[in-house]
């Protein structure tokens, strides 16, 4: 593979957003990885020319961040949060069962090339623990059974709906989104779940609702704190 002309054009577009070229290094690496599946030698050469750095300087950066991969992964990277809270709430069991189920370990890919398992750190979704991700889209409130199902569906090539996000897409597409390319999926995904709305619903039920700035200004509710 090589970095495509389309990707190069996207890279050039990203470059103009930044006051200094070097600042575009990370989005450029995300884009390169979308094309190549990992940070290939080719990516490093292309990106280093674009941002006018040495290849060593680019390698220094690409090797620092965990999302930039050293080797190609399967079609979907399936992450299981194993930080303390998720681990305790079931992440460890989920991980063990997936390892068993897929027959691969951390950063390894199932033999059909479909799924790469990865132990991931806290995803800022602890209210929805145990948490998994598929190509970085949230899979909240997981159980062992749900986790296996997700992996089976992914391996079978079936669409998997993320929670609080769109249908899980390809690794390459996810990379482009992260690099800032508009994928038209903003409206996807239902985020209004019990966890997100826990406080709001309670407030509404208690009559505490509407204590928004706007509501207060309108005098709809006039309860001050304390």
């Amino acid at each position: 593979m090589a970095i495509s002309e389309t990707t190069r054009a996207q890279m050039r577009e990203v470059l103009v957003d930044y006051p200094r070229k070097r600042s575009a290094l990370m989005p450029l690496l995300h884009l390169a990885q979308a094309d190549e599946g990992y940070i290939s030698q080719d990516s490093i050469v292309v990106v280093s020319e674009m941002v006018e750095l040495t290849e060593a300087e680019v390698t220094a950066v690409s090797s620092f961040y965990t999302m930039y991969l050293k080797r190609e992964s399967g079609r979907v990277r399936v992450g299981v949060c194993i930080n303390s809270l998720c681990a305790v709430l079931g992440g460890d069991e989920i991980w063990d069962s997936l390892v068993d189920h897929c027959g691969v370990g951390n950063n390894q890919t199932t033999d059909d090339g479909a799924v790469t398992l990865e132990r991931i750190e806290c995803q800022a979704a602890c209210t929805h623990a145990p948490v998994m991700t598929a190509n970085w889209e949230f899979l909240d409130d997981m159980t062992v059974e749900k986790a296996k199902q997700v992996v089976d569906d992914l391996r079978a090539g079936q669409a998997v709906q993320s929670t609080r996000g769109p249908v899980v897409r390809t690794f390459a597409d996810a990379g482009r989104t992260i690099a800032g390319v508009d994928d038209g999926l903003t409206a996807e995904g239902e985020i209004r779940d019990d966890r997100m709305l826990a406080g709001l619903r309670l407030a509404q039920a208690n009559g505490d609702a509407g204590r928004s700035a706007e509501a207060e200004r309108q005098g709809a509710v006039n309860v001050k704190g304390r």
């Binding site: 903003t186 985020i191 209004r192 997100m196 709305l197 406080g199 709001l200 619903r201 309670l202 407030a203 509404q204 208690n206 505490d208 609702a209 509407g210 204590r211 928004s212 700035a213 706007e214 509501a215 309860v223 704190g225």
Partner: peptide
């Protein structure tokens, strides 16, 4: 202490992010 949804006051609306 009451709840005070300000930032989260309208999260229950389908287009809260628009």
């Amino acid at each position: 202490m009451p709840l005070t949804p300000v930032l989260s006051a309208h999260w229950d609306e389908a287009d809260s992010y628009t």
